[in-house]
Each structure stands twice: as structure tokens, then as C-alpha cells.
Write a protein that binds this DNA or RNA. Structure first.
Lengths: 339, 339
DNA sequence: AGCAGAAATGTATACGTATTCAATAATATT
DNA sequence: AATATTATTGAATACGTATACATTTCTGCT
């Protein structure tokens, strides 16, 4: 074991290259007004020692952390990693670090604390429930804020959403047009605006197609204890089961299918199933779930751009942008793709 | 729009509560030697203004960031979010923030830069390829390091792994004992030690069971372009296909099954398929993949503990801990669970 | 009451950087 | 060549916190 390498500072670099600390700072921040030869000399030393400026000192001095936060919940929903990956790609491409908070565990205290302590320059909220303490805290702290796949009624911030209402409306229409007579809708907790919007759209779609929504066919369950799997079994086990089940999102649909399969129900022969989100695995051959697809990558990119522009002061007006969803018909509604 | 709230500092809190800045600092860091009444008074002001110490100033002063990094790659492999969630749970429960780096995109530059600039106090590496610049940089920077589900030959750091070799060995034995005559093995890039170990174990398991591994039945593909789906189609389409396909991990197995299904092959009637990892969705009824399960939650917790102990200087010797894997037999190898 | 010692608080400083302002070196102008 | 101008560089400072050290305020004891 050799002696501790002793972390270098810009002062050390300055000494080693025979210039002042200020000059080192100028070289590293790429400001002009520094002679090419000097820059060269300093960079040489920097490279040689693998020196990097202390991020915290930088952050403190500039009041900019170069990091953005992403608040997620329900990571087990596969759409979350998909959003996360797209966001991360966008942000890191633009030189920002990404700090992720899972607001399931430990509540939102950690996130709120992080907001107040200035750890991030901005924040993206992904689909979750409405009344968010953290969002309020961020707003009060005057922190740039973007919501993706979720709408805040009270909070004035940029929002990137998809046509949840219309997509569900069209979905209902599709099912009825295809001759489904008895259509159920399975949803998660309705304090999630995304889920609530979809259910509302679906109801209206049914009515528009001439069917009065039957309250007994609208279900809501929490995201735990395998509730949706159990529900799938129950639905198939009941007398006179529906001939189609639409779900608030793809994960719900998959869990419903688990229950159906466990109960011996064949999809689509006995019951059709459709989801909403368009997660990647919905397209897998072994799942082949009909769903309403959102352009996740686009939405995430847009959210990232919104946030960064706002952080950099390029935008002041808040804006809501809505992306068009697309119905993807697959095998769970009887459509067999060409081989 | 009201006037800017003007971020408060400990100096402001001190002034507002009629004490010195040092006392404010003492109150907030919970050090004793502060009169109860004073503490009360200060906390009152702190609460009233929602003040939180500036994390960067704190980090700079203490040389501790209170954050740990997690380096991941291939986020699209569902095991990654599972590991991530478990790690996050552990770390946040212990008061640490988690910063995630995806080393797929943008290479490892961002991560290396973060290491050198002191952004995190420690780092967890999850399964990826062997020759990691970032790991080397971390080691050089004298940063605590833990690898999970991956082994470094060269680097001296704590490691949390599972019995990849033995698990695969037993798996081969199981398949042969069940009467499979012609067993293929499909793997990803073998610079991932985890995948390499499994393949090696599988080979030896076959031999031990009296079967000479046939080089034509060992496949390796990159994680892109749907290569495994294509391979699944090709394998079933070939003359005299195998009667079982073992895979380097669950995601590969699922993609192989996609290809098999697309080619009209029934699992398990025509071909058995087994995976490795034990991701959650392998247990779903609609997938029901036989696999070798790792105790991900335990492994993640252990990794977190290792890292924190090392950061806090409680450990000096590096250690490798190996968790036992467990064969989970499901429908893709013909076993139908009780209803 | 007086004093020693402990408890509580205040003062001063350092962390590593970016930046303002002053000083110097280089260049252009006459 | 002398001066005006500009291009570089250096010195000094502030950011917000934690902590070593100095100082003050309490306590208990004789």
C-alpha cells in the first residue's frame, strides 16, 4: 500500500504549472482570454494528474449543481425504467447528472430535503399521484419543474403528456366495433391523474359507441399483494364474465392475464385483454398485448429539453404539450401478426 | 409574482434566532453541548423558514458527499431495475442519496469525471463487462468500491456474487436427468464474467452428466438488433433442432422464446427453455420460465452494507461473498404448477 | 461569597472554486 | 521611441458550512 494520493486542487495544479489558481480555473472553464501556450501548459499538468475540479466547490461557487433530479414511483412498472433511460440519455448528453428519487420508500422527505438544500437545478416528476408534497416544495423553492405523463391541476409547471383521454376513447370504440358486448375496465388507484383520465375517456368512448357503462364492470385495485392477478381470476370465475378487459396500463393488463391464465382462461379466445402505455414487452411475441402506445422516447426528450431550457432561463411561460397515442393491435385482441 | 425568496443560509438563521452561526450548525448536526432551550429556539426558526443546509457547502467542508453511485448498463434487462430498486431502498434507508450512471450511453466518461471530482463517496458496479476504465479510476482515486453480480479479476474490491458456476452446473444436470438429449446454450457477450461463469459451469455440468458439449450448440450473440429473437427462429428452423435451450440470463431466454413463438415452436412441448437470474417476471403465469434464481434483494442489501461500512472505515479487508442460487422449475420445462 | 470546573456559546478559519479588480506584458499607433 | 491600447495574468475575495479554539455563562462546592 502506497501513501495516500492526496487529492489535488486547482491550487496544486497552479503551482505545478507555474501559473496562478485563477488561470487554472480559466483554462478549465474554457473562458477565452488565456494564451494558447499557457492553456497548453496547464492542460498538460491536468492530464498528467487526472485532475478534475471539485464538483461541490464548483456548485457552491456558481450556485449550479449541474444535476437534475427525477422523481419516480412504482419502479416495478416497466414503463418507469423506460422513461428513466430515455431521460438519462437526454440529460447526460447535455452534460447533466441525473439523481433519482424513489418516492415509494421513505416517502418524499429525502426528495424535499434535497430540493431545499439545492442539490439539483431542476426536477422531473413522472407519473404518480396528485397531491405531492415534494412538487409543492419544489415550486416554493422556485425550482424548475416538469411533469411527464402526469398532470398537476394546481401547480403551474411544464407538462408533457399524451392523449390519455382520446386514446382510451378510441380504444373503447375499437372494442365495441369489433363486436365486444361486455367490456370491463380494470384500473389502479385513481389519484393518479393518468389513470383517472384514461378511465374517463374509456367511459365516454363506450357511451359514444352506444353502450352504457356498467358500474359492476369497473374495477379499481391497489398496486400490491398481487391484487390484479387475483382480480383476473375472480373475473373469469364469476358467472357470465365479460368478453373483454381494458386496463389502466400495460402492467395491470399483464397481471390480469396472469390471473386469467391461472384460472384457465384463454386470451383472446375466451376474453380479450388490452392495456395502455405501450411498454416494450407488450410487443414481445410471447405477450403480444394490444395496447395504446405513447411515444415515450419523444416525451422524455421533450421533458428534458423543457427542463434545461427553463434552468437556463430560456423559457418563462409554462407550457403543456400533448403527444398523440397510437392503438397497437396485437394478439390479445385476436389479431395475429403476419409471420 | 412576489420578490425572489432569497435562499437562506445558516448565517441568516443565526441572526434570526439571535445566536451564532456555529450554534446553528451545531443544532442542525445534532451535536450535543447545546442547551435544550437554544436548540428549541433555533429549530423554531429553521422550521418556520423551511431552511436546509446547503448540501454542497456541507460536502465541501466535510469532504463527504453523502451520496453513493451506482453504475449500471443494459437497463433494459429487467434485473437491473430490480437491483437498482433494492440498492436504492438500502441506501436511502441509511441516509444516502443514490446517483445512477448508465455506462451504455456516452461511455464511462461521465462516471470517471464524477469519481475524480468527488461527487460520490463510494460506488457499486453492477453486472457489466470486465475491462472497466471507470472501475480503475475509482480504485486509483481510493474510492470505496463494491461489485455486485460481477467479478473483477484484477481489482481488489468487495464483491457480492452468486453461485453462477454451480447453479449452471446443476442446471445442466437437471436437464440431462429429465431426459433432454440435445441441449443448446445461448449466451451474450462473454466479456461479462457472470455470463462466462455460467457457460463454463454449464459445460462442466454436461460433462459430469455424461454428455460431451457440442460446439455447434453453443451460441453467443450481442444484446442488440433483436439478435436472440432471430437466433430462436433460426434454431427451431434448423434441421434436427435441440430439445432444450439454456440461456445466459432470463432476458435472453425470453427473447429466444419470442423467436421460437414467432417460428411456430411450442414451449415446452417442442423445446424446453431455461433462463438464469430469477427476475420477477419469470414467475409470471404468462411466462412461467424455469430459471436459476439469485437472491437479488439479499445481494443488494449486502452490497450496500459492504459499501457503507467501507466508507465509514469499518472495514479494510476486501471480501467476496457468494450467495446460493436456487433452481426454480416452471412451465417452460414441462412442469405445471398446482392450480 | 468566592472559586474551580464544566457547560454553552461565540470567533475565527479553512475547504476549493469562480470571478472582480488591479497589475503586468504584449502589441499597435503616432 | 514613446505612448495608448489591448491581451494576459495575478491577487484578493466570497460562497455556506463545520470545527478548533477562545470566551463567557452556569453549577456545584467550600
Amino acid at each position: 500500500m502506497n501513501t495516500k494520493p492526496k487529492k489535488l486542487s486547482s491550487v496544486d495544479i497552479a503551482r505545478l504549472s507555474g501559473v496562478s489558481q485563477a488561470t487554472v480555473s480559466r483554462v478549465l472553464s474554457g473562458s477565452d482570454g488565456v494564451k494558447a501556450a499557457t492553456k497548453e501548459k496547464v492542460m498538460q499538468v491536468v492530464k498528467a494528474h487526472g485532475y478534475r475540479p471539485n464538483a461541490f466547490a464548483q456548485a457552491m461557487r456558481t450556485n449550479q449543481s449541474a444535476a437534475v433530479g427525477v422523481a419516480v414511483s412504482r419502479v416495478t412498472n416497466p414503463i418507469v425504467p423506460e422513461i428513466l433511460e430515455a431521460l438519462t440519455r437526454s440529460f447526460t448528453a447535455k452534460g447533466r447528472r441525473v439523481v433519482v428519487w424513489n418516492t415509494d420508500e421513505n416517502g418524499q422527505d429525502g426528495l424535499i430535503s434535497a430540493i431545499r438544500s439545492g442539490l439539483v437545478d431542476g426536477l422531473v416528476f413522472t407519473a404518480a399521484n396528485q397531491q405531492s408534497e415534494a412538487a409543492k416544495a419544489a415550486h416554493e423553492a422556485d425550482m424548475p419543474l416538469v411533469s411527464i405523463n402526469r398532470s398537476f391541476d394546481e401547480l403551474d409547471c411544464d407538462q408533457v403528456v399524451s392523449t390519455n383521454h382520446q386514446g382510451a376513447f378510441d380504444l373503447a370504440d375499437y372494442l365495441v366495433k369489433c363486436g365486444r358486448k361486455k367490456v370491463a375496465f380494470v384500473n389502479g388507484p385513481k389519484d393518479r391523474t393518468t389513470l383517472a383520465d384514461r378511465e374517463q375517456g374509456f367511459r365516454e368512448g363506450l357511451r359514444a359507441a352506444g353502450i352504457t357503462p356498467d358500474p359492476d364492470l369497473f374495477f379499481s385495485r391497489p398496486f400490491k399483494d398481487n391484487a390484479f392477478r387475483q382480480l383476473g381470476m375472480d373475473i373469469f370465475g364469476a358467472d357470465n364474465p365479460p368478453d373483454a378487459i381494458a386496463c389502466g396500463n400495460d402492467l395491470i393488463a399483464i397481471q390480469i392475464m396472469n390471473g386469467l391464465k391461472a384460472a384457465g382462461c384463454r386470451v383472446p379466445e375466451d376474453i380479450w385483454v388490452v392495456g395502455f402505455d405501450g411498454i416494450e414487452m407488450a410487443g414481445w411475441d410471447i405477450i403480444s398485448l394490444t395496447t395504446v402506445q405513447q411515444p415515450i422516447e419523444l416525451m422524455a426528450n421533450n421533458a428534458a429539453t423543457f427542463l434545461l431550457d427553463r434552468i437556463e432561463g430560456k423559457r418563462t411561460e409554462t407550457e403543456t404539450i400533448q403527444y398523440r397515442t397510437e392503438l397497437k393491435v396485437r394478439e390479445t385482441t385476436g389479431f395475429t401478426p403476419a409471420p
